[in-house]
Design a protein around this nucleic acid. Structure first.
Length: 255
DNA sequence: ATGGCTTGAGTGTCAAGA
């Protein structure tokens, strides 16, 4: 099973690129973030024609997540239980015996801001829910835009980003708290090129200069981690005209 | 340089992203 995650920064703008990418890469599951579409506007027909069923949990303008699958999804959950939130950031479904959780974690804007407090509260609620969810379904994958660079090696210039948003100690502690549940960063199961990133700012030729961060992740439960055969970042879509600022991350599981 | 792009809203120019 090939599973992937991609923050598309508007599915309306990026739909042609998503369709091309699905045809080229042929994932079994694709988790999308920042769709920025109400569910009624979701392009289900175009995706069905490409062989994918779509689950969406979206809103106008901001946020929005979706899961595209070749097999029928079951046991669908929208939003974080026990966390009052108008922002559409979470969607879960079981596909081929694997619990797929697609998350768009809050950005946090600036360390110490109200949005930062919301980010840390959201991450704590996610951890509390996942503790139960892993018990219920040991084959679990958490995919998405975490908006956290877990370590200095995930940052092009660690000194520039020291204790800045996406890199602060409390954010990294929240990421490690997810690992403490038994989840594993699939990307770090394998030898990877130095300076591997998944996001590059649109400004100042950041992609060309590889001024990026690795903030999009696939975390696997231990049972799935033992079955993971590869995890890669696909930089190809970031090179296209009018790209998303994020690149897809792909993991291959032997089930 | 509370900047530098991009998107969505909406038709001015701002909020938000990361």
């Amino acid at each position: 099973m090939k599973i992937a995650t991609w923050n598309v920064n508007s599915l309306k703008v990026r739909l042609p690129q998503v369709l091309d990418w699905l045809a080229a890469v042929q994932p079994d599951v694709l988790a999308l973030q920042e769709t920025k579409l109400e569910d009624a506007a979701f392009p289900c027909e175009a995706l069905a024609a490409a062989g994918y069923q779509a689950l969406a949990n979206g809103q106008k303008t901001y946020n929005g997540v979706a899961i595209l699958t070749r097999q029928a999804p079951a046991d669908v959950r929208r939003d974080l239980p026990g966390f009052a939130d108008t922002q559409k950031r979470l969607l879960a479904a079981t596909v081929g015996g694997v619990r797929i959780i697609c998350a768009y974690m809050p950005n946090g804007q600036a360390v110490g801001s109200d949005k930062y407090a919301y980010k840390l509260a959201w991450l704590a609620a996610l951890r509390d829910w996942l503790r139960v969810e892993i018990e219920r379904q040991p084959r679990l994958a958490l995919l998405g835009d975490f908006n956290i660079a877990p370590e200095d090696r995930d940052v092009h210039d660690p000194e520039l980003w020291r204790e800045q948003i996406l890199c602060s100690t409390p954010e990294r502690a929240a990421f490690r708290a997810l690992l403490d549940l038994g989840l594993v960063d699939a990307f770090r199961l394998f030898e990877q090129p130095e300076k591997s990133f998944s996001w590059w700012d649109y400004r100042q030729l950041a992609f060309r200069r590889n001024h990026g961060l690795r903030i999009d992740h696939i975390l696997l439960s231990s049972e799935l981690a033992g079955r993971c055969r590869s995890c890669t970042i696909d930089k190809a879509p970031r090179k296209l005209e009018r790209p998303s600022d994020h690149a897809p991350v792909i993991a291959e599981l032997e089930l």
